[in-house]
Design a protein around this nucleic acid. Structure first.
Lengths: 314, 314
DNA sequence: TATTTGAATAATTTAAATTTATGGATACTC
DNA sequence: GAGTATCCATAAATTTAAATTATTCAAATA
C-alpha cells in the first residue's frame, strides 16, 4: 500500500491558485493566510519532486508538470464533490435502496400498498421487495441482506433472540367457501361442520399452512380428520379453486378483499373458532439502520398496524 | 469554495478496511495502530453523518452508505495513483512535451536532426517545434510558451537582458553559384566580383537576410550596388533558383550540404570575406526548466556545437 | 528612488492525528 | 460454560503537522 504523496487540501489549494493566478488571492478565497498556501504548495512540490508554479512575474503560472497535475486535481476534486452529493442524497432520502422482505401472503397483498405509500412520499428511494419463506427471510435480516421484513409465521428460536420482533397487526385467516356451497347460506358454522368440507390448501411447507394447522389444532380440532381435496402452492390458485366450487379453504382476509366485495367468495363464520395470526415486523438491532428503513418503520407501517400494535404509539 | 468533508487518508483507510474486513488488519496493512484507524473512520462517519461499517460481528461489514462511499473512494484513489504515475513519467522523461523554437533556417535544417537524436534517446517525450521569426521566438521563450530555442539573428535588446543567450555554434553563410556560372571555375573571388553577380535573396524581413546584409556591410561592401534579381521567402525556392542558373546567393551551409555533395550548387570563396553568424541557444532563466529541456540542452545540443562553444564543456 | 504588491522564511501558537494503555463485547476452545 | 483470544471503542498523553503572526526579500509600479 503506497504512501499518498499529496492531500486533498493541497489539491484544493493548487486549484485555487491556478484559478486565481495568485497565492494571495487563493489564500483569501480559502480563508487561510498566504504562508499556509505557500507552505502547502512547497510541500507538494517537494513530495512530487516537481515545480508546479513559476512565481517569477506578476502572477503565478503553471509549469508543464503543474498543468498535468491540475488536470488530475480537477478530476479528483470533482469526484469528491460527487461523492458528497451522493451521500447527502442518501441522508435526505433522495437516493438509496430499501430492501424489504416478506412472506408470500404479505408480500403479495400487503407490501405493494405499503411500498406504494412509501414511494409516494420518497420517490427517489428505490425499494426492493424480496419474497421468501419466513425462515429464509429471517436469515436475510440477520445477515443484513434485508433491511426489514414482515412475516406471518414463527421464526426459528435462535433467530428470534437475534432479531427484534414487533407484532404490528393481526391477520385473520378466514374460512372461505364457494358462494354456491350449501353451507354458505348458514349464518354460523360449528366446528363439526369443518369435517364435512373438502379443503383446498397450501402445500405443507408453506408458512401460512403451518400456521393454520397449528391454530386449528390448538382450538381442539383433529386436523387428520379434515379432508384435503388438493394442495396448491399459490394462494391465487387456491382462490380460483374455491371460486370454481372445488372446496373450502382458510385464507388470509387481506388476500380475498376483492373477491369478498365481488361476492365471488363467501366468508363463513365458525362458532368458537378464531383463526388469527400475528404479522410481525422483524429488524436486526445489531445492525446499522438506514434512514429509509427508519422512516418506513416509523411512518409507513403504523398506518397499516392494528390498534394494539406497539407501532401505533410511535 | 466548500470545505472538504474527508481526507485522502480517510479514504485510504476505508478502502483498506473494506478489503480486509477488519479494522485491525487494515491498521497493520497501513502501518498504524488500530485506534488510529478507528478514530479516522469515526471522524469520517461524523462528518458525513452516516454509518459506514457494521462492527457487530466477526468482521466489519459495509452499510449501504459505506458501499456507496467506497465506490467513489476507489475511483478517487485510482485517479490519485494515475496522477502520481504521470508525474513520475514526467520526471523520468517518460512523458511530457518539450517545446522548441527555431528560426526558419535552423528549424528546417538543424532541428530535425537534433530532435531525431533526442527522440531516439527519449522516445516517450514528445517534441513540438515552432518555427517563427527570431523576434517572436524570443518573446515566446520569455513568456514560457517555448522551453528553449535556437536563433541565428539578433534579439531586441530588452529581450537580450531577460533571456539567457548562449552561442553554441557558427553557421557559415556561403556564397553559392550555379555550377555552370562563369565565376564558378575561379578558385577565389574578389569582393569586387560580387557586384557583377545577380542575386536571388530572401525577402528583406527575414532574419537571415538581415544578418547577411549586416555582415556584408560590415566588411566594407556597398550593398546598394549588389544587383538583386529577385527576393523569395523560402530557402528551398532560392536553392532551386540558384541551381537553375538564375543567380547567386548567400545561404547557410547547413541548408545546402546535400546540394554541395551532389555538385548541383557551387560554393565560392571570396578573398577577405567571412560571412558567419552565431547560432545562439536562448532560454528563460527566470522560469522553471523542465527535465526534458535540461537534458536537451546538456546532452543533445553539444553534439552539434562547434569547438569554441561553452556548451562543449558540459 | 520610493512605494506597493506578492511570495518566502522564521518563530510561535494552535490544532490534529497517533500512540500507549485500558475496558468491553463477541466469538472460539476445551 | 468458564477461559481465552480477538476485535473494536475510549481516554489520556505524546508527537506531529499545520496555521498564524511578523518579518524579509524581490519584483513591479509610480
Amino acid at each position: 500500500m503506497p504512501e499518498l504523496p499529496f492531500t486533498l487540501d493541497q489539491l484544493r489549494i493548487l486549484k485555487a491558485i491556478a484559478a486565481e493566478g495568485s497565492f494571495k488571492k487563493a489564500a483569501d478565497l480559502l480563508y487561510v493566510t498566504q504562508p499556509a498556501v505557500s507552505l502547502q504548495i512547497q510541500n507538494l512540490e517537494k513530495q512530487l519532486e516537481i515545480t508546479i508554479f513559476d512565481r517569477g512575474g506578476r502572477k503565478a503560472l503553471l509549469t508543464e508538470a503543474g498543468r498535468l497535475l491540475l488536470e488530475y486535481c480537477e478530476r479528483i476534486l470533482n469526484q469528491c464533490d460527487e461523492a458528497c452529493k451522493a451521500i447527502e442524497d442518501l441522508n435526505s432520502l433522495k437516493g438509496g435502496t430499501l430492501v424489504i422482505g416478506a412472506s408470500q401472503t404479505t408480500g403479495t397483498y400487503l407490501m405493494p400498498r405499503m411500498i406504494g405509500l412509501f414511494r409516494q412520499k420518497y420517490p427517489e428511494v428505490s425499494v426492493q421487495l424480496q419474497v421468501h419463506s419466513t425462515r429464509r427471510t429471517g436469515w436475510s435480516v440477520a445477515n443484513g441482506q434485508i433491511d426489514l421484513a414482515i412475516i406471518g409465521g414463527q421464526l426459528p428460536s435462535d433467530l428470534e433472540n437475534l432479531l427484534q420482533v414487533i407484532p404490528y397487526a393481526t391477520d385473520e385467516l378466514a374460512l372461505v367457501l364457494p358462494p354456491k356451497h350449501q353451507l354458505s347460506s348458514k349464518k354460523e358454522l360449528l366446528k363439526e361442520d369443518l369435517y364435512k368440507l373438502n379443503f383446498v390448501t397450501l402445500d405443507s411447507q408453506s408458512t401460512t399452512r403451518k400456521v393454520v394447522d397449528k391454530l386449528l389444532k390448538d382450538s381442539g380440532l383433529d386436523i387428520q380428520r379434515l379432508k384435503i381435496e388438493m394442495e396448491l402452492n399459490s394462494l391465487e390458485a387456491i382462490k380460483n379453486a374455491v371460486q370454481s366450487g372445488l372446496g373450502a379453504s382458510f385464507l388470509p382476509v387481506v388476500s380475498i378483499e376483492r373477491e369478498l366485495a365481488a361476492g365471488t367468495i363467501h366468508k363463513a363464520f365458525v362458532a368458537d373458532l378464531e383463526v388469527e395470526r400475528e404479522l410481525k415486523l422483524i429488524t436486526n438491532p445489531s445492525r446499522y439502520t438506514s434512514r429509509a428503513s427508519e422512516v418506513f418503520k416509523k411512518n409507513i407501517l403504523p398506518q397499516f398496524a392494528s390498534l394494539e400494535s406497539p407501532l401505533r404509539q410511535t
